[in-house]
C-alpha cells in the first residue's frame, strides 16, 4: 500500500517535472529564436520588402476582423455599463466608464486574442508546412538564412501591425459605443465622445499601445517558433497550429496581467 502511494507520488512528481522542463525548454526556444531574429535581422540587407509584405499579409488583411471585433467590443461594453449606470441615475457617465476599460484593456486585449491568434496560427501553419516539405532546409541550402528570411519579417510585421490595429480599434470601439449610447440610452453621441475623451490621459493610450506592442512580439515569436519546431507529417502541422492557439492565448493573458500590474501599481 505504502509503496503504491510512493509510486503514484513519484509518477506525479515526474509528470510535474516533465511539464516544468518542457515549459522551460519552450521558453528557452522562444528566447533563442527571438535573439537570433534580432541579431540576424539587424544585419544588412534589412529585408524591408519582406517586412512590408508581411505587414500587408498580417496587418492589412486583418483589418476587417479587427474592425468588426472593435465595433462590437465598444457596443457591448457601453451597453453593459449603461445598464449598470441607469440604476444609479448616472447614465450620462457611460462615456467615462467605458473609456478606460476599452482603451487600456479591452481593445488591446481582445484584438491580441483574436487577431493576434489568427496571425500566430497563420505563421505556425505556413512555416510548419514549409518545414514538413523541407522548404526551410531548401532556403538554408541555397545560402539564405531562414531566420532572417522567415522569422525576422514576421516578427517585425506583427510587432508593427498589432499596435496600429489597436489605434484603429480604439476609434471604432468609440464609434460603436457612441451609437449604443445614443440609440439605447439616449445619451447624445457628441456628449459621449466628449466625456469619453476627457476621461483619458495620454498615458492611458500609451499603456494600451505598449500592451499591443508586447502582444505583437509574443504573437510573432510564438507563431514562428511553433512553425519552426513542427515535427514531420501533416498531422504535426495541425498539432502545431492547435498548440499555437493555446500558447498565444495563455501567453497574452499572462502578459496582460503582468503589464497591468506594471502600469497600474497597487495603491
Amino acid at each position: 500500500m505504502a509503496s503504491s502511494i510512493q509510486e503514484s507520488l513519484n509518477a506525479a512528481l515526474a509528470s510535474i517535472g516533465g511539464w516544468i522542463t518542457s515549459g522551460l525548454e519552450w521558453l528557452g526556444g522562444i528566447g533563442r529564436i527571438g535573439g537570433q531574429a534580432v541579431l540576424r535581422g539587424l544585419r544588412r540587407p534589412f529585408g524591408f520588402y519582406d517586412i512590408l509584405y508581411q505587414v500587408v499579409a498580417l496587418g492589412v488583411r486583418s483589418l476587417p476582423l479587427a474592425s468588426v471585433m472593435s465595433i462590437f467590443i465598444g457596443m457591448v461594453l457601453t451597453w453593459q455599463f449603461g445598464e449598470a449606470l441607469i440604476g444609479f441615475g448616472a447614465k450620462n457617465a457611460v462615456g467615462q466608464a467605458a473609456a478606460l476599460a476599452l482603451v487600456r484593456e479591452l481593445v488591446p486585449g481582445i484584438l491580441a486574442l483574436t487577431v493576434g491568434a489568427k496571425m500566430s496560427t497563420g505563421m505556425a501553419a505556413e512555416l510548419g508546412s514549409m518545414k514538413v516539405s523541407e522548404q526551410i532546409d531548401a532556403i538554408a541550402s541555397l545560402g539564405a538564412d531562414p531566420i532572417k528570411k522567415l522569422v525576422w519579417p514576421r516578427l517585425v510585421a506583427a510587432t508593427i501591425s498589432l499596435p496600429l490595429l489597436c489605434v484603429w480599434g480604439n476609434v471604432l470601439a468609440l464609434a460603436g459605443g457612441a451609437v449604443i449610447a445614443d440609440v439605447v440610452f439616449d445619451v447624445p453621441s457628441d456628449y459621449f465622445y466628449e466625456t469619453y475623451v476627457d476621461e483619458l490621459w495620454p498615458s492611458d493610450y500609451l499603456s494600451g499601445l505598449a500592451k499591443s506592442l508586447v502582444f505583437g512580439v509574443l504573437v510573432g515569436l510564438i507563431g514562428c517558433y511553433q512553425g519552426f519546431t513542427t515535427k514531420y507529417g501533416t498531422e504535426a502541422v495541425g498539432l502545431a497550429t492547435t498548440n499555437t492557439v493555446v500558447a498565444t492565448s495563455v501567453s497574452i493573458l499572462a502578459m496582460d496581467f503582468l503589464l497591468t500590474t506594471l502600469f497600474l501599481p497597487v495603491q
Binding site: 508546412s129 516539405s133 523541407e134 522548404q135 532546409d137 531548401a138 532556403i139 538554408a140 541550402s141 541555397l142 545560402g143
Partner: peptide, 20 residues
C-alpha cells in the same frame, strides 16, 4: 563560410521543396 559552401554545393530535395 556557410554561405560560400552553399553557393558551391547545391541540394535537390526529395519532394523538390519548391517555394509554393
Amino acid at each position: 563560410g556557410q554561405r560560400e559552401l552553399r553557393r558551391r554545393v547545391a541540394m535537390v530535395f526529395q519532394g523538390g521543396a519548391l517555394f509554393d
